[in-house]
Structures are given as structure tokens and as C-alpha cells.
Design a protein around this nucleic acid. Structure first.
Lengths: 145, 145
DNA sequence: TTACAAAGTCAATCGCATTGACCTACATTC
DNA sequence: GAATGTAGGTCAATGCGATTGACTTTGTAA
């Protein structure tokens, strides 16, 4: 990092990443708050919504948290009738998770806000820039850090 | 969001943002941990490093936290001789913050890891994709959410 | 039958933030 | 010069999301 101009460009890029993350979660967080829920509940709703019928253990692996961390929020979502669990026919120990109709509605509301936000940004940036954005972001997944 | 294919693309984009944020902080966090420091300390070092001589109140505004939240980490950084504060000549109430030589070294280590990470990704993606990425990300700053 | 695996729960602790209250030092205004 | 206001610092209580550790129940598999 000899070039001070390049260094400034990379600093700006860093701030763009942090700002992007923050602005994508701000709106859903406000909606969650009105229902007494937090970010973790959205994450659960999102992944259960994308993977209906997944087990608790699979969800833990996706979220990368301990079962103790998941316990309270998941129980709360079940008490609120947003998530439903039933024993697996294949393995009676495993509980398979799915969203209830209310859970589907809330998940669509929360994630919909985020998708519309991204859609708005992509449409302003243009499809060529979107392709470059996507191509760049995909390299993150290939870089262990 | 009628088009299921577009919806899946936007979901993928959402996950890319979250993953990018996580992977950019993972390495610095490991370095911080070896010194008994956390994310908040890096944020302070970064902004003091970019804006030497800024006041505590200005730093609070940039970070968007309360003075109580900043108090402990800032004191710790001063005790570790990474940040230095001195009364403003213009206004004796205000404390102006700057990094010490050790603070500059640690800040360059932490942020350097992140810049090299981004640089690696940009060089793999290519400069056209980088331009599209940047152009897209800049729209986040213009969108109130 | 014995051993292992999936899930759930209780307790203690930590990190990072909040609000509220209060203090000192210094500046500004009247 | 006195009163008021501002910058900063600190203590206490609290919330939330996470951790590790220990233990139980239920069901599967060797």
C-alpha cells in the first residue's frame, strides 16, 4: 500500500461496506422492534423460510451460534406462532422447522424491505454496475480472509 | 417482487453483503483479541487515525454512540498509550485526540489487513467490476433506507 | 443393553450498548 | 463578575445477544 491515493480509495471502499450493511438492517430492525423482536429473529425467519423442514441442528450450523443462543429466540417465535416444529418422520429426535402462515407473512415483510432496498439501488446503479458488484462480491466468498 | 428468479438473485445479494461484512472484520478481530481489544477499539483507532486532532464530541458523532459507551474503550486506549489527548488551545474544555506512534502502528496493522483483503478481491474481480461495485455501493449512501 | 446423538434448559459470565444522574472544568453571555 | 451553558468524565442500573459448562429427556444404533 505505497500509493496514498489507492489507500484512500480502499478506505472509502471499507466504509462503503460497513455503511451498506448498516443501511440494509436499519429498516427491518425498526419493524422488528414494534413486535418486540430483534435481528436474531429475522435471521431465523429468513433461513427457516429459505429451507423449510430443516432441523434445529442444521439451523445452528447455518447461523453459526450455540444451541443456547438459539434456544430463547426460537422458543419465542414458536410461542408467537411464527415458526412451527414437528418431529422428523425419519428420526424422531430431530425437530423439523417451518414457518407458519403468519411467519411467512412477517418474513416476507422483513426481507421484502431489504430486497426492495437492493432493487432500488441496483436500478439506480444500472445493470452493468450490478453485474460488476455481484462479480466482485462473489470473490469474498472465495477468500478465507 | 413477482419474478421468483429476481427474488432469488436479490436474496443471494443480501447474503453477499452480510458475508462481506463478516469476512472483512474476522481477521482484524483475531488480531485485536490477542491484545485484549475489541471491534470498538478498532473503530476508534480508525477514525482518530483518519482525523487527527478531532475532539471527543466529534468522535462520538462519527461513531454514533453515547459518551458512556465510548468512555471505557477510549480510556483503555489511552492507558495503553495508543491514543493521546490534549486540551484544545482554542477551547480548553475540548480534548483533541490523536494516535501515538504505537497507535499508528496498530491502526495500520488492523486496517492494512482489511485494505489488503479488499485489494486482493478487487484485483481478482478486475478493475471494470471494481468500478461497478463502487458505483453501486455509493448509492447506498444516497438512499435513506 | 449399552452407547451415542438431537434437542432443550439452567446458571454464570462477557461484550457492548443503552438511559439517567451527577461532577468538574472551562466559555459565553448578561 | 455572576449566571448559564457546553465538553467531557464517571457511576449505576439495565438490556440483549452471545458464550461455556453441566445436566436431562428422548430416541437411534451398535
Amino acid at each position: 500500500m505505497q500509493d496514498p491515493h489507492r489507500e484512500a480509495e480502499l478506505n472509502a471502499a471499507l466504509e462503503l461496506v460497513f455503511h451498506g450493511y448498516k443501511s440494509l438492517t436499519a429498516r427491518p430492525d425498526r419493524i422488528l422492534e414494534t413486535r418486540g423482536l430483534q435481528r436474531v429473529h429475522h435471521r431465523v425467519l429468513y433461513f427457516v423460510g429459505r429451507n423449510p423442514g430443516l432441523s434445529v441442528g442444521e439451523l445452528l450450523a447455518i447461523l453459526g451460534v450455540t444451541k443456547q443462543a438459539l434456544n430463547a429466540p426460537l422458543r419465542q417465535l414458536q410461542e408467537m406462532r411464527l415458526v412451527d416444529s414437528s418431529p422428523s418422520p425419519a428420526d424422531g429426535r430431530a425437530r423439523l422447522l417451518r414457518l407458519t402462515p403468519d411467519g411467512i407473512r412477517l418474513e416476507r415483510l422483513l426481507t421484502g424491505v431489504q430486497r426492495r432496498h437492493l432493487e432500488r439501488i441496483f436500478s439506480k446503479a444500472g445493470s452493468a454496475s450490478e453485474a460488476g458488484w455481484r462479480h466482485t462480491m462473489e470473490w469474498f466468498a472465495r477468500d478465507p480472509g
